[in-house]
Computed example of a mutant assay.
Amino acid sequence: MMTCLTVIYITCSSGTKAAEKLTVAFGEVLAPWVLAESNKGIIIEIFESAVRPMGFEVEHVYLPYARRINAYQNGLVDVTSDINLNTIQGHALKGFFSDIAYTYENFAFSLHKRHFNFSHMNELKKHSLLSWQDAAIHLGAEYAQMVKSHAQYSETFDQSNQVKMLFLERYDVVQMDAQIFAYYRAKIAGSDGVDTTQRVDSFPLFGDSPNGFMFRTKKMRDDFNVQLKKLKQTGEYAEIFARYTSIPPESFVPETKP
């Protein structure tokens, strides 16, 4: 018995040290960037692949954008996603901002039969517009100024609802990332009487939206940046995108007007 106990003690003592948990706040309805039901998605895989060599296990927390910010500010999570310089300034966030980890490409989407032809975001003030939560801060001063005087502007944390509202003609225009739009357009096709086969026009009025993560410690942020760079150099970064879309992140272009 003593021999058996000794073997068990040695085995346990020499075993691999358990990974330290890192609590991270991700978006709630943000496919294909975040798939909360399976703990998968582009953003999650980028983050997990970067921190795994650092010895961390990710504990996922899924929250709407405003609650993610509150959770980070109140010390309930170690890291939060979807951060850029606008959100850092707008919410007075304290911490250490990573290098850019991914980039959203936001477009204004409208039904083709409406025959809109937007060339500047101020033209959207004439039409009902549904955007995503905290866009007025995230997208910068020009966008914030436009929506401040927009009488028919709303935001929602559920981006699948944006797609539904467009095809149900509840809103003239929705503003969202191209890959998110494409994902939910395919997912809700034929459901709830939503005709997603209608032609859609898209307008690149907002430019790219580069994002990263906010960390509580400088060392963790610096180590993450090193691993993120390696992901990009080895090709694993591109492979992550390829698992969720056949179109490379830098060249995704949705359906546009002829």
Rank of each mutant, 00 (worst) to 15 (best):
A178Y: 01
P248E: 03
Y65H: 09
G235C: 01
S110E: 00
E20T: 13
F203S: 06
A92Q: 14
Q152K: 09
P32L: 10
L166N: 06
D195C: 01
S191Y: 04
T245H: 12
T6A: 13
D192N: 12
R52G: 01
M54N: 10
W132K: 05
H120Q: 15
L111Y: 05
F109K: 02
L124Y: 10
T217R: 11
P32T: 05
K219F: 00
A242E: 11
V194F: 05
N106D: 14
M220G: 07
C12H: 09
D82S: 13
T156Q: 05
M214F: 03
E28V: 08
M1A: 15
A108P: 07
I44L: 13
K21I: 07
T80K: 09
E123T: 05
D78W: 08
C12R: 12
V24Q: 11
I247F: 01
V226M: 08
N211H: 15
H112R: 11
A135G: 06
A182H: 11
Q179H: 05
V163Q: 08
A108S: 11
V79C: 04
L139Q: 13
H91Y: 14
L5D: 11
E255M: 04
T156D: 14
D99P: 03
N84L: 04
Q227R: 14
N84G: 02
I10P: 01
K229E: 15
F252T: 07
F109S: 07
D82R: 10
K113G: 04
S49R: 12
F96E: 05
K17I: 09
N74L: 11
I180R: 01
L228C: 08
Y102M: 01
D158S: 10
M54C: 10
V51H: 09
V194A: 03
D222K: 03
T196Q: 10
L5S: 08
A144C: 08
I42K: 02
Q227M: 15
E59D: 12
V163T: 06
R221F: 05
D158E: 11
Q89I: 00
Y104W: 08
K257A: 14
S209R: 08
A31F: 01
K232Y: 04
M2Y: 09
A238Q: 12
R243N: 15
S110P: 00
E123L: 07
E48A: 14
A178P: 00
S209P: 00
A238V: 02
S149K: 13
A36K: 12
Q145C: 05
Q145L: 11
A108R: 06
V51G: 04
R170P: 01
I69H: 04
A101F: 10
K229M: 11
E45Q: 15
F118N: 08
D78Y: 07
L5Y: 10
H120S: 14
R67N: 10
F181D: 00
E155V: 05
G95A: 06
M2L: 13
I8P: 01
K17R: 13
T103C: 02
N84A: 04
E155M: 09
I240C: 09
S154E: 10
Y171K: 08
H112G: 02
G207M: 09
T156K: 06
Q179T: 10
T197G: 10
N225A: 13
K126L: 09
Y62E: 06
L228A: 08
K218R: 11
S131G: 13
T103P: 07
